[in-house]
Design a protein around this nucleic acid. Structure first.
Lengths: 234, 234
DNA sequence: AGCTCGTTAACTGTCAACAATCCGCGATGC
DNA sequence: GCATCGCGGATTGTTGACAGTTAACGAGCT
């Protein structure tokens, strides 16, 4: 096996798994903005000590999903629609333009096949209305391309932007578009990548991301998450 | 004392101080890309245990200043000029546009005075050639405005972008412009803020930040910092 | 009543010891 | 010679205990 084409397994330390569990709880909406996260609770529920939990919380804090105040604890942070539209989506656009441009000449046939199977999975998920899997494959598509760009800062910032965008659409704008548009758009992206034409790729990408920024303007703004004083009684 | 105008002292836990020490060592160039950071060394030098050091490293990792590989350690990460120009500066522009727009109606007379004194300090620093203080006041100027915007995600992303930009200019493009332009540009920004006219503020800001993205194109690209195998013998 | 000040429970912050993993190097076998 | 295996030092990952801080509660004073 000379050409290293193995998917290079993700690092799985305890702290990474704790981070993933908490992040998916937040992104999935089981932890809502304003909810407190108590280290002891998490560590006892997950049967680990508080060390890894603390490190996970530090990471989530840097990802903008939680805030913590010294000696007072950590709570889940909300995102205002304004910040999503005016900051997160424009940043995402900057990142992905850069990433797709750099990944384009580096994508192997195996990569394109992997993307194709993700698109196929999206089609079937849309067909049976499995929105969770649809979102999951959506993220993986972009993750893969961005990973192939081999630009460390681009990847790092992407990892901090993407969960917030996803949390926002999951929590506050659940029905932003027909679930059938998503697979089609990614199919177009994939076709553009196969064509290896940078201009086409970037134009398609731009259209794709802008689609997602135009959410229902009647949706309520969400600007919760100020410093908490006092705590809820049981 | 009804109107809360106290500068609200920064949280000073051990982990915050360790983070600050390491970050300033990286941004200041005393730790260079590729250098290893060993938890035990840091903890013994700073006379603290490894816990806070680990949390500091997690935070710096999220700020993109270091990378760590499981069970193998942490090392300082470099930034390529391409990533600075194509990602970090555009993101900075997005953030500051948003922040200045939101801060504009919220800035108090005291805030404007504080900005004025920063500008004054920049003038005197430029006069005696104190580039460190100049850069320090530069950052504080933008920090203050962004803090006043009261947009949590904007602030959070700023904190992760700014150190990288600063590290880049400090390490790789030390003489990007005359030290006398900096105070003047901030003077203009301050005047625009005093005028309370959004369009003027944004135009001035844009010019200011773009100035900084146009660095000497002959400067060497810096793309170090891949995964390390093996370790240097003493 | 309203304010101030101890008291206290619930947390977070910090530490030092222990466990797990990686890397280099030399022994071993072919 | 050269690949493979396994040992050992260095360093990171994890744990449980202890110390410090916060905010709510209630007694005492005015």
């Amino acid at each position: 096996m000379k050409p290293a084409v193995l998917p290079e397994l993700a690092p799985s330390s305890l702290r990474h798994r704790v981070t993933d569990v908490l992040r998916s709880a937040i992104v999935g909406g089981r932890l809502r903005p304003g909810d407190r996260i108590v280290e002891e609770d998490v560590s006892s529920q997950l049967k680990v000590s508080r060390g890894p939990v603390r490190e996970a919380l530090r990471q989530l804090e840097q990802e903008g999903l939680v805030v913590s105040y010294p000696y007072r604890g950590t709570e889940v942070l909300g995102v205002s629609q304004e910040e999503v539209e005016d900051i997160l989506v424009p940043i995402r656009l900057t990142l992905e333009r850069f990433a797709f441009r750099h990944a384009l000449p580096l994508l192997t046939a195996a990569d394109l096949d992997a993307l194709a199977s993700l698109v196929a999975s999206m089609h079937s998920a849309a067909a049976i209305g499995d929105l969770d899997r649809l979102a999951e494959q959506d993220v993986r598509f972009h993750d893969l391309v961005i990973a192939r760009s081999r630009q460390p800062h681009c990847q790092q910032i992407w990892r901090t932007i993407e969960p917030r965008v996803r949390a926002h659409f999951r929590r506050d704008a659940p029905a932003h578009s027909s679930p059938f548009e998503l697979p089609d758009e990614h199919q177009q992206l994939l076709d553009a990548l196969r064509g290896r034409d940078e201009a086409t790729v970037l134009a398609t990408l731009e259209g794709h991301i802008r689609t997602y920024s135009s959410v229902d303007p009647a949706a309520p703004r969400d600007d919760r998450g100020g410093p908490r004083r006092g705590q809820a009684k049981p």
